[in-house]
Write a protein that binds this DNA or RNA. Structure first.
Length: 744
RNA sequence: GCGUGGUUAGCUCAGUUGGUAGAGCGACCCCUUGACGUGGGGUAGGUCACAGGUUCGAAUCCUGUAUCACGCACCA
């Protein structure tokens, strides 16, 4: 085939990209073992390893994923071209609560309820959905050009990762790091599960604050936004030095009828009460408030649960019993008004806790749950706590966070960290590997005492006498193991030895606590080593009006796959990289992408020109450059030195911009234009041709991590010519992807 | 309340050891048998939020102010 046939048409990404990806995949070079086998990587080469942040199996890819895939593919391709043994490991995340609630919603549309199906049947539906999502995600990921080693693909809920999770749980349980405790937890009434502190999203809303007293003869007014919880009050707390209330401290008042409920209220003094807030007196509801529970514990106050898992009242007469909390609130407020107990009603701004996944308002409830103790000293880790294990490697510089200022954010989070609630009342996920004895007495009473429990990697042998805990684990528990569970841990193997700790962890800065910190925790605790040497945190992608891009935005959001069809993947990549610096959000707009599409066209046309002009050039025996051309070549070499340094400092935006400008303003506008004159006048035309060829090959290589498709396509056209040299040892690797980065 | 980041051309943003400000897009003008009309070339446009300080010299370092985001906590 004539080398210029393909160039007769403008560059068409639609026709090219799938074909090029297949070429890469078929070459096997995504897999570092094959690179070594086929001699493109030395067996003792330096290692570059990185895990892909596993996308949730909840649907399809969005621009956030496209950004991850672009940045990480640049990192990976650069490392591979530098001759490093390079592993970028793919996988997907079962995303427990997110996936389950998605399937529940789908079933709802068919009029099917989760509990009608039962646990097993429901899980089958979820697994089917997860599998379909997985397939879509993998297909789309390949469209993005990601050079991932698919032979090592993992899933957070597959058999190997399951073993890793159970092994971890068992070890933490034996070390006393995992415990079961009855505490006030964040209950999601919609999702019907507990969630961790990090899964709460605060929303500012207008709320009414009511100031009232429990009864006409009660001496103190209190303020609250949730009058319905007051039927669960057991005390009123005041500041010990507040002169207004000093005389009442220590007394107990019986309120015979608070909207049909009898209350016993003790007046206590607690230093945490703020005198200036409200009336300076706080009605203590130990069962439905975290801070009140702490006060109650200090003063040994009784706790009275008055709200259940469905956010309905469990106390009172027909007026409020079984009513929703919001209804009960109104009823109690009108009761207060009727009885002249309400002093004040004012509108305030309030941060309402909502569940990240379901959007429901969190109901604090006392519940028996599993926790990870972050403060307990661990004997076989030099008596350090999990908190210390998370803190140290970052503080000591063993883990470098880019951009640097996120280290402070990280420290700040650890300082305020409380025990991690890891149990969830949902069905999809890793079931907790704990079994309770099933005795006849317990079966008949329906109540397990849990005196003796069995925790192990595998179920007890006499399984018929045991019943497994019905809860599953927080999805981040398995995500925390990701850097090494993907490499086969807990089974000893060479992958784990070779590729762990990983070189780089690249993810969005919104995941620093959820994921990054949890990986440090798990790796430090289980392996006694860091999970990664570098953390690169990118920003969020926003629309032009500054909103976080999400699918619910409809037309305003950019769908990466639409963009690829319109402008090509290379254009999208450049738009995501140029002007994007770590930690900062990126406003993505279609105009920019269109502009970089033009650049791809420029590369295409310039390459056509070069290939036409060098058709008679002996590529294995290049003519000498004249003085002028030698200077140009030296300038490019200097540029390569600069950008190589910048690549090593992860400054991809700068590198892409410099290459863009060099290609357009120097290579196309100066060197090509000069060569036209030289070739036309046949004055040093050999030198001009040699320079065109040298510059183009270097530019294709250095552009390749950023615009892999078009550079590979051109390389493939160029290749037959390069490999027709007389000497076979001169022949090149079959794909640009494994060419050497032009360091020298 | 504690913490972090931003404020640079009409818009979106770069600008790392402090040395007379850059890009893309947009605007305007010119070119059109040229590798490229999904084009090319060019022009205009900025007391780098404000006020002090350090310095021969500050967008860059220090202090303070304003303002916009974000994170955490509180939320009676």
């Amino acid at each position: 085939m004539e080398i210029n046939d393909k160039f007769l048409k403008p560059y068409d990404p639609k026709e090219t990209e799938d074909k090029i990806y297949k070429l890469w995949e078929d070459s096997g070079f995504f897999n570092p073992d094959i690179c070594v086998e086929k001699g493109v990587t030395k067996s003792d080469a330096e290692i570059f390893s990185m895990v892909l942040p596993p996308p949730n199996v909840t649907g399809s890819l969005h621009t956030g994923h496209a950004l991850v895939l672009t940045i990480e593919d640049i990192m990976t391709r650069y490392a591979r071209m530098q001759g490093k043994k390079t592993l970028w490991l793919p996988g997907t995340d079962h995303a427990a609560i997110a996936t389950q609630s998605k399937v529940e919603k789908l079933l709802e549309k068919e009029g099917i309820k989760k509990k009608d199906l039962g646990r097993e049947e429901f899980l089958k539906r979820v697994e089917k959905f997860a599998q379909e999502s997985h397939d879509t995600i993998v297909r789309q990921t390949k469209k993005m050009g990601a050079s991932l080693d698919w032979s090592r693909e993992a899933y957070t809920l597959d058999e190997k990762r399951n073993l890793a999770v159970r092994t971890t749980f068992k070890q933490m349980y034996d070390d006393g790091l995992i415990y079961r405790g009855n505490r006030i937890v964040n209950w999601d009434p919609k999702g019907q599960t507990v969630i961790s502190d990090d899964e709460i999203v605060y929303e500012e809303r207008k709320a009414k604050m009511y100031t009232f007293k429990y009864s006409a003869d009660f001496p103190i007014y209190i303020s609250t936004t949730r009058p319905e919880t007051k039927v669960g009050d057991t005390a009123v707390a005041v500041h010990p030095e507040d002169p207004r209330y000093k005389d009442y401290i220590g007394k107990t008042y019986v309120v015979e009828d608070f909207c049909g409920v009898k209350l016993e209220i003790k007046i206590i003094a607690d230093g945490t009460v703020e005198r200036d807030f409200g009336t300076g007196a706080l009605g203590v509801t130990p069962a439905h408030s975290q801070t009140d529970a702490e006060i109650a514990q200090r003063h040994k106050l009784p706790s009275k649960q008055v709200i259940n898992e469905f956010a309905k009242m469990t106390i009172g007469d027909e007026r409020i019993l079984n009513k929703k909390t919001t209804e009960a609130r109104e009823i109690i407020v009108s009761w207060l008004k009727e009885n002249n107990l309400l002093e004040k009603e004012e509108e305030i701004n309030q941060n309402v806790s909502t569940a990240e996944r379901t959007g429901a308002i969190i109901e604090p409830l006392p519940k028996l749950q599993w926790f990870i103790d972050v403060n307990k000293k661990i004997p076989n880790r030099e008596n350090k706590s999990l908190k210390e294990l998370m803190l140290e490697p970052v503080r000591d510089g063993k883990i470098k966070i880019i951009p640097n200022h996120f280290e402070k954010v990280y420290f700040n989070w650890i300082e305020n960290l409380r025990d991690w609630c890891i149990s969830r009342q949902i069905w999809y996920g890793h079931r907790i590997p704990v079994w309770y004895p099933r005795t006849k007495a317990e079966l008949s009473s329906g109540q397990a005492e849990n005196k003796k429990i069995y925790c192990n990697i595998n179920p007890p042998e006499d399984i018929e006498n045991w019943e497994q805990d019905t809860d599953t684990l927080d999805t981040w528990f398995s995500s925390g193991l990701w850097t090494f569970s993907t490499l086969g841990w807990p089974t000893e193997n060479t992958d784990l030895k070779n590729y762990h700790p990983t070189t780089m962890l690249e993810t969005g800065h919104d995941l620093i606590f959820f994921w990054v910190a949890r990986m440090v925790l798990m790796s430090q605790y289980l392996l006694g080593e860091i999970p990664f040497e570098n953390v690169y945190l990118h920003g969020m992608i926003r629309t032009m009006d500054g909103k976080k891009m999400s699918k619910s935005m409809g037309d305003k959001a950019i769908d990466p796959l639409d963009i690829i069809i319109k402008y090509g993947n290379d254009a999208l990549r450049l738009a995501m990289i140029i002007g994007n610096t770590p930690g900062n959000d990126l406003k993505l707009n279609e105009n920019d992408i269109r502009g970089y599409g033009k650049f791809a066209n420029k590369i295409w046309n310039a390459s056509r020109f070069v290939l036409e002009k060098i058709s008679d050039l002996d590529l294995n025996n290049l003519p000498k450059l004249d003085e002028e051309d030698a200077i140009s070549q030296e300038e490019l070499e200097n540029l390569i030195k600069e950008i190589t340094k910048e690549m090593n400092e992860f400054r991809y935006s700068i590198v892409a911009e410099k290459l863009y400008h060099y290609f357009w303003n120097t290579f196309a506008n100066i060197i090509i234009e000069r060569s036209k004159k030289k070739i036309l006048e046949n004055n040093n035309s050999d030198s001009a041709k040699a320079l065109l060829y040298l510059q183009l090959t270097i530019l294709l290589k250095t552009l390749h991590p950023f615009t892999p498709f078009i550079t590979e396509e051109i390389w493939q056209i160029l290749l037959p010519r390069r490999n027709t040299g007389t000497t076979t040892q001169n022949s090149l690797a079959p794909v640009l992807m494994v060419e050497k980065w032009p360091n020298d």
